[in-house]
Simulated scan of single mutants.
Amino acid sequence: MKRFIRIGVVTAWPDDDWHSQRLLSALGRRGEAIAIDPAALAAVVEGEDVAVTAAGRALGEVDAFVLARGLGRAGDPDVQFEIYRALEGAGAIVVNRIEPLLAAQDKFRTSWLLARAGVPTPPAAVVQSAEAADRALATLGDAVMKPVAGSLGDDVARVGRDAEGRRAIAERAARDGALYLQQYVPHPGRDLRVFVVGGETRAAITRHAPPGEWRTNVAGGGRAESTDCPDAVRQVAEAAAAVLGLDYAGVDLVIGDDGPTVIEVNGNPSWRGILEATGLDMADAIAEHVLGRALRGRMTSDHIVREPTGATHG
């Protein structure tokens, strides 16, 4: 008898993280969903195979894994990354895969991948000294200073070529050792967040900056409203997610004089603002996509990940 589809949601916060809870619920309505603590993962090399367990539990009958919150509150991040790579190498379906996630987290890598693929995105630079930052700012002009990795608008500031801007980038370079500069794209206090799942646009919102602020992040007080997604925006957002190799992504865009341009691509995006503005729960879209991939995977393999000798079943 065929068993239920079993999906592992990798998260250290199954009871606290809103997004993990939504994914576990959406997947649980379609099959069996199990929470997997990243810090409980282990891997064993047996001959030519790699076997992965979670707290001694064999994961050989898990049809797909969703990296909801892939870093645990304990354990070692580099080890966890390597285990995700081992899962993929063993033939497991992993959503989103670790390399696309790391590419999206790195703002400079995102910039050059998009630019190389011809996806419209602002000129950008990454620097490791105040002198290099000053030269980059001279080229970019009005720019947005950001950490190389991060989200939610934290430590993001506009800087110009004036004394204040040059002082700000020098202080940031000295503090962090590196910083990312992206040419500022003028916008009327609003931008677009497009949620792409399985290569298709599933929802879009316009995000409005709070009074006196240019940043539109909902987590920082921005206001979101449902919006129609023009075809040009849809095509650019879907292309951006595809370039980075993401199964699902939140793509932030500004529409300027030359059309839509991608500001950021989020590989682990929040969709709380989308749900509140549109009534659409992206957990359902992600679950349907993962289920489809898992069902197709069953056509080629009965067991996605091999089980190590002596592993126990939960």
Rank of each mutant, 00 (worst) to 15 (best):
G177F: 12
I169Y: 10
A132V: 03
R158T: 10
E213K: 03
A203K: 01
E225Y: 04
L152Q: 13
V144Y: 04
D142K: 01
L192T: 07
T139I: 02
Y184N: 15
E200Q: 10
G153W: 00
R193W: 06
Q182V: 14
R223A: 13
A178F: 11
P186I: 06
L137T: 03
M145A: 11
V148M: 12
G198N: 04
P211C: 03
A173P: 10
E131F: 00
V159W: 07
E131C: 01
A157F: 06
K146H: 04
G160V: 09
D134I: 02
G212R: 00
A132Y: 05
A157N: 04
V185A: 10
T227R: 01
R161D: 12
R215A: 01
A224C: 08
R135D: 14
P210H: 11
V185G: 11
P211Y: 05
R166F: 11
V144D: 13
T216A: 06
R215W: 02
F195Q: 01
A133V: 10
R202V: 03
V197R: 00
E200I: 02
M145T: 03
A168M: 04
G212F: 02
L152I: 04
Y180V: 10
A224H: 05
R175I: 07
A173M: 14
V218S: 04
S151I: 10
A138C: 07
G153R: 00
D155T: 09
D155E: 11
G220H: 00
G198R: 01
K146A: 05
F195V: 03
G189N: 06
G177Q: 14
T227G: 01
A130C: 06
E200K: 02
R193D: 12
A219V: 14
C229H: 04
G222T: 07
T201R: 11
A132W: 00
T216H: 04
L192M: 11
P186K: 06
A133P: 09
V194G: 09
E225D: 14
R166H: 12
I169N: 12
M145C: 08
G141F: 06
R223Q: 13
L192E: 12
G141R: 03
A219T: 15
V196R: 08
D176E: 15
G220E: 13
R158V: 14
G199R: 06
G177Y: 14
S226L: 04
